[in-house]
Amino acid sequence: MPLQDAASVAASLPLARALREHAWLYPAIETLHILGFAVLVGAVAMFDLRVLGFGRQLPVRALARHLLPWSAGSMLLVLPTGLLLFVADPLALLVNRIFLLKLGLILAAGLNALAFHAGPYRQADAWPARAPPRAVLHALLSLGLWIAVIACGRLLAYF
């Protein structure tokens, strides 16, 4: 089934209609999405800032053990609410360049995190006082990507 056909089917679902027709349902779902996203990006940003050298008294791995459950748990809120927001108007979103850019940036942020954890993070216990340049690069890229995702999310309201 082509993507446009699947989007048309999704838009006609009773849940999609309810999201469009009930005054408080879409804003409530959007609020939950933003709350989950705040926890996700907040946890990621705190970790990235540690890799960049802030809070050096906190061991990198100890901070990761604390923040990873928060970021993973927030995905349990962000993903379903994001899908619900998408289902409300999938046809418009699939042709919206800002939305497509947001998805691409999220993918890039995820790939960056995977590369970080498969690469420099594996040696985090052996890092000297400062993280190695490759880890710093991943942290800077992560912060930039998530800031861009936030910007795209806000711009969706205007385009």
Score class of each variant (00 low, 15 high):
Trp24His: 14
Ile98Glu: 00
Ile106Lys: 06
Pro133Phe: 07
Ile29His: 08
Ala6Asp: 00
Leu58Glu: 12
Gly104Thr: 05
Asp5Trp: 02
Ser74Asn: 06
Arg50His: 07
Leu114Ile: 12
Leu156Lys: 01
Ala11Phe: 02
Gln4Leu: 10
Ile150Met: 09
Ser12Thr: 07
Leu49Ser: 04
Lys102Asp: 03
Leu101Tyr: 00
Leu83Ser: 14
Leu25Gly: 12
Phe159Thr: 15
Ser74Gly: 15
Asp125Tyr: 01
Phe159Glu: 05
Leu63Gln: 11
Phe159Ala: 13
Gly104Val: 08
Ile29Asp: 02
Arg17Gly: 11
Ala62Glu: 06
Asp5Leu: 12
Leu100Trp: 00
Ala113Glu: 01
Arg61Leu: 11
Leu94His: 10
His66Leu: 13
Leu84Pro: 03
Leu52Asn: 09
Leu107Val: 15
Leu100Glu: 02
Asp5Asn: 12
His66Met: 13
Phe86Gly: 03
Val95Asn: 06
Ala28Met: 10
Phe116Lys: 01
Arg17Val: 15
Leu35Met: 13
Asp48His: 10
Ala10Gln: 02
Phe116Gln: 03
Leu32Pro: 01
Ala88Glu: 03
Ala115Lys: 00
Leu63Glu: 05
Ala124Met: 02
Leu143Cys: 10
Leu19Phe: 07
Gly104Tyr: 00
Ala11Thr: 09
Pro2Phe: 06
Arg61Glu: 13
Val51Tyr: 08
Ala16Arg: 02
Asn96Gly: 08
Ala139Arg: 02
Arg134Cys: 01
Pro14Phe: 01
Val95Ser: 09
Lys102Pro: 08
Leu49Trp: 14
Trp70Thr: 03
Val87Tyr: 04
Glu21Arg: 10
Ala126Glu: 04
Leu58Val: 14
Leu91Lys: 06
Phe86Met: 09
Asn112Cys: 07
Asp125Leu: 11
Arg65Thr: 10
Ser74Glu: 06
Leu91Trp: 00
Ser74His: 05
Gly144Ser: 11
Arg154Gly: 12
Asp48Asn: 13
Asp125Gly: 15
Tyr26Asp: 10
Leu101Lys: 04
Arg50Thr: 02
Ile34Phe: 13
Gln57Asp: 09
Val149Gln: 02
Ala113Tyr: 02
Ala10Val: 14
Leu79Ala: 15
Asn96His: 09
Asp48Ala: 14
Ile98Tyr: 02
Leu145His: 02
Val95Gly: 15
Val149Cys: 05
Leu32Ile: 13
Leu94Ala: 07
